[in-house]
Nucleic acid binder design. Structure first.
Length: 279
DNA sequence: CGTGTGCCCTGACAGC
DNA sequence: TGCTGTCAGGGCACAC
């Protein structure tokens, strides 16, 4: 065990783990009831959500960026975003204050709990998913073939903003959040303040695998933890991770180059990096 | 149109 | 102990 322990925000790996966990219980099942305990999260719940979902059969689940997709046999897809604090619980033994949506099947009950209510639930016509405004402008999936050094070179060309901020821009890469941008830049040894358009080709060639590695490692850790959590009252997708940069202000860089991890603010958010090895 | 800023929200935590 | 202030940040509205 080498890293700082964090109970994480739902970033891409947590969403991926949540989707995989839910899929094991939901795929092929019919929704017997869907109950809303309040009118909205970030935005109002879709007015037809309850009617459309009740009695629908869930065909499969998937993920796009940090959204989880629950596909049904009614040409409608229920899309959830966990925001900053959202999580799904399976077969909760008792209700929690911030359980905002309850979904049941013949086999299980599910609660979507989100204290800060930064999350969202939407219902979109399945055939029109790509045109759904939050999806329409998204860049490639970081774990898909669309992310390459060539794509980044093109997408970042001439950009003055810092590479840290550009990587948080969902139009450039879809699904990266603060934690994994910090981690990927550390791994690729790129200074987060560097103008996006000035990141060199060799750096971009390092950045692409760095992004993939930090995400896949986290998904793998989550997957192993998930086995412990996929039980009654289990929470899906939350697990402790170890980081090399994120949250390690003042601690020594793990490259043992004498650098101390520094925290700076970019776009109103914290960035952690090693000023010695990240150039 | 591209870019930058502030807001939404609650819980955790520090300081007094 | 209990209060107050600060911070966390994804996505979106809005200003320039």
């Amino acid at each position: 065990m080498s890293g700082s322990e964090h109970k994480e925000m739902p970033e891409l790996p947590e969403v991926e783990t949540t989707v995989r966990g839910l899929a094991r219980f939901l795929e092929g099942e019919v929704v017997t009831s869907l109950t809303l305990n309040r009118p909205n999260l970030r935005r109002p719940f879709p007015p037809d959500l309850v009617q459309v979902m009740t009695g629908a059969r869930i065909t499969h689940l998937s993920r796009r960026a940090k959204y989880g997709l629950i596909h049904t046999d009614r040409d409608a897809t229920m899309i959830f975003h966990l925001g900053m604090s959202g999580r799904w619980r399976i077969d909760p033994e008792s209700p929690e204050t911030h359980d905002h949506l309850l979904l049941t099947t013949a086999r299980n009950r599910f609660a979507l709990c989100d204290p800060r209510r930064f999350g969202s639930v939407d219902l979109v016509e399945t055939a029109a998913l790509d045109r759904w405004p939050p999806f329409a402008a998204l860049g490639p999936e970081p774990l898909g073939a669309g992310l390459s050094a060539a794509h980044l070179k093109r997408a970042l060309a001439g950009k003055v903003p810092a590479i840290k901020l550009a990587l948080l821009d969902q139009r450039i890469v879809a699904g990266l959040g603060n934690i994994y941008v910090c981690e990927a830049l550390w791994r690729a040894r790129i200074n987060p303040r560097k103008a996006a358009g000035k990141v060199t080709r060799p750096q971009l060639e390092r950045l692409v695998p760095a992004i993939r590695e930090v995400l896949t490692a986290s998904i793998r850790d989550g997957g192993s933890t998930l086995r412990d959590y996929a039980r009654p009252d289990g929470e899906l997708g939350y697990f402790a991770s170890s980081f090399d940069a994120y949250g390690r202000e003042g601690e020594p860089c793990r490259r043992e180059d004498g650098g101390l991890i520094q925290r700076i603010t970019q776009g109103g958010r914290s960035t952690w990096y090693c000023p010695v090895c990240q150039r």
